[in-house]
Write a protein that binds this DNA or RNA. Structure first.
Lengths: 226, 226
DNA sequence: ATACCTGATAATATCGATATTATGGCTGTT
DNA sequence: AACAGCCATAATATCGATATTATCAGGTAT
């Protein structure tokens, strides 16, 4: 429910857990569009369970900022807006820079191993399987900052990552990476990180984010203007 | 449930809302000590309501980091530790500085009015009524940064504020303000803010936090060593 | 004596049903 | 014709009960 990007305690998940993961996924990939009303009855049928775990899952999603609760009028998926996107991008850059610097300052061998492994897995995954790739992509980015000795900061970064990826999914095919070599960007960031070169790693990371950000910003601003 | 520090839609609150506020208060002021098991049955008796709103309130508190959920073993209040305290203090300083600068950069007359009013109310409140004073104290601090056009950042600051205040309550009477003039510190921060002097306001604010922080840090570190 | 298994107990997680509350169309009035 | 108030409908919020799961004490085997 929280961070646990790399580990996954393979237990039979509770109904709440299943509901949380399912609904979260549906929101992130856009199956449930922004502003969509979330009727308990509907979700019950889809997920085949009682109302209580659904309510609980939705409540968890509220604090992830992926769902909004209205007085006594139920839940709906969070709205999107150009401003909200800019806000998330900006915060993400600031918090991840903090986290990166702290992480690199105390990073040990175990961290380095984690990082290299997650990078390897990411580049080995065919880009065709979008959701799986995004999962590995997130794992890589979270591992960069994972040595940072601040669970709360990591939690915030994790949340912001999810909020951001939602916009990426919503932009969907419109995303145009043609002028970029994403693979090289990742490689360079990792190299700088392994060298413990915080300035360089942060510069590359923020550039990595801002490139995609600038594109998406334009995309959503234009779309909102329609 | 979210920010709403200054406004309060005076509607009859739902059972969930009541449970959330009650339990949150009990954790913050230390009536429910750190690590305390939270049995639904107990809370039902105390709050006189069904189990569902309680569960939902506890779920909300999980994402406030005030409550922890254990697999299938229920809930308990979050543990405390010197390291956790330092982490919160540090994050708070960094995030509030960001928020303060953004807030002052775009602050308008309405913001200034809000700030002055909340300051006035705070200094008028007798310190005897601790909980009421703390409420006003929080309102003042949140108002400083309230013009910042970033709801997510405000939400984070709000959360961190609550996590921090919990430590203050736990230290309780041990808190020794004798060498400080808290009233003047607040006044100076407000003056700098009203002057839109971001550097000065931030310097004073961080000093304000770090003074209390340094004391509490010592307090909890010593206590943990016992 | 220690460790492991087992059953009784207590607590949780979940469900189905009910009471409460919002919504939207309809009627009557201005 | 437009608007306000009202009623039927649908959805939510909440409750009480049940099934599932963890905990812990007591007993047995090593």
């Amino acid at each position: 429910m929280n961070i646990q990007t790399h580990i996954d305690t393979a237990q039979e998940p509770s109904a709440t857990q299943r509901a949380y993961l399912s609904i979260r996924r549906m929101i992130l990939v856009g199956e449930l569009p922004p502003g969509q009303k979330l009727k308990i009855e509907n979700l019950r049928k889809i997920l085949d369970m009682g109302g209580s775990p659904i309510r609980e899952a939705l409540t968890l999603l509220v604090s992830d900022l992926l769902v909004e609760r209205l007085d006594q009028r139920g839940f709906r998926t969070a709205e999107i807006s150009p401003h909200n996107f800019s806000e998330i991008l900006k915060l993400r850059c600031q918090l991840e820079e903090m986290a990166m610097r702290e992480s690199l300052a105390v990073a040990d061998q175990a961290w380095e191993d984690r990082l290299v492994i997650s990078h390897h897995r990411m580049i080995r995954e065919p880009r065709a399987n979008v959701e799986r790739f995004e999962e590995l992509h997130k794992a890589f980015h979270m591992n960069l900052i994972s040595a940072c000795n601040s669970p709360v900061l990591l939690k915030f970064c994790n949340q912001l990552y999810d909020l951001n990826i939602r916009y990426r999914y919503l932009a969907g095919k419109a995303l145009n990476y043609s002028k970029r070599d994403i693979g090289k960007e990742h490689q360079d960031i990792m190299n700088a990180a392994v060298d413990r070169d915080a300035d360089e790693a942060c510069a590359l990371l923020l550039d990595h984010y801002k490139r995609t950000g600038a594109f998406l910003e334009r995309h959503f601003t234009l779309e909102a203007a329609e």
